[in-house]
Nucleic acid binder design. Structure first.
Lengths: 157, 157
DNA sequence: TTCAAGTGTAACTAAAGTAGTTTCATTTAA
DNA sequence: TTAAATGAAACTACTTTAGTTACACTTGAA
């Protein structure tokens, strides 16, 4: 898998932190839930922490929690915090292009593609972490769910 | 460069075809303009041809041209023709997830990320190839341009 | 009818990004 | 003092894009 799952994993992790509420959620908890490696999770959490979305406590009993309620976190906040590069790139067509058209294509394409990405970002701004959690909860209820105690159990193995 | 320049190169190529009008533009012409390899261009044109945006003529004097005027080609048409996979992927969290929440996160995330991509696509739908060409032309004029004869010269080296 | 100019395609290499893993220093609560 | 955490570095593996070479096939024109 070399696909871009970073954003999805980050949302998943943030969702778990929201569930955890006042409790510290460990990278191990998250990793087990996403079926990945704790280090991968910590790398993501480190970025989210640097951007002020998450606070981390070191040492025994440590872990991560949100810095603000999930209603105040838009998915665009998470996306931007990851600092992903542009989705589309324009091969730098030199300013020294021998064709007058060629010299102007690059900047125009850059502007156009940036505009497209803003369309994506605008959509992400309309969705909060709380919305995502709500969708998950409703989906659970529709299926008739069972156990799982949100931040309580924290089944240590 | 392992970045995603495919879309930008495709737009650039289509733009050249629009300029070429009735003339056949060769993959070599395009490759020289984008500073890449003719094979790379042909691979892109092949996809665009399969999706009906471009028609290609084999043999001497051959090359590519658009199947319809650039006013009728939205950037979303080009993007979709390239058949890129989803921008974001969700690591498949098994349906057998031991946590009831976990079983429902995957589908919800998929839906959310799909919605974000649709925001991007919606933006691309509002821009035609002709718009892009117009922007380039206007930018040229603003800078006080010089020569270049659109489909005429075809400087053979 | 031959040849040069094209495309189509396969095969290979190179470079970059993501994911995964191990390891170790450091912090902290009990 | 010890166990439970994070932080970070180092390394491997895999995937995707880009670039290149090579060659079969098509076509127009001398």
């Amino acid at each position: 898998m070399a696909a871009n799952t970073r954003f999805a994993v980050a949302i998943h992790a943030m969702g778990m932190l929201a569930f955890g509420d006042e409790l510290n959620v460990t990278s191990d908890d998250i990793a087990r839930s996403v079926r990945t490696n704790p280090v991968v999770v910590r790398r993501l959490l480190a970025q989210l922490t640097r951007q002020g979305l998450v606070m981390v406590k070191l040492g025994a009993g440590g872990g991560a929690r949100l810095t603000r309620p999930p209603e105040q976190i838009a998915l665009s906040d998470i996306y931007l915090a990851l600092g992903e590069g542009p989705i589309f790139q324009v091969p730098l067509l030199d300013e020294t292009h021998d064709c007058a058209v060629g010299r102007n294509v690059g900047p125009v394409l850059n502007a156009v593609l940036l505009r497209a990405e803003k369309g994506l970002l605008a959509e992400l701004q309309t969705i909060t972490l709380a919305d995502v959690i709500g969708k998950v909860m409703r989906r659970m209820k529709r299926q008739g769910c069972a156990r799982h105690v949100p931040g309580a159990g924290k089944a240590r193995k």
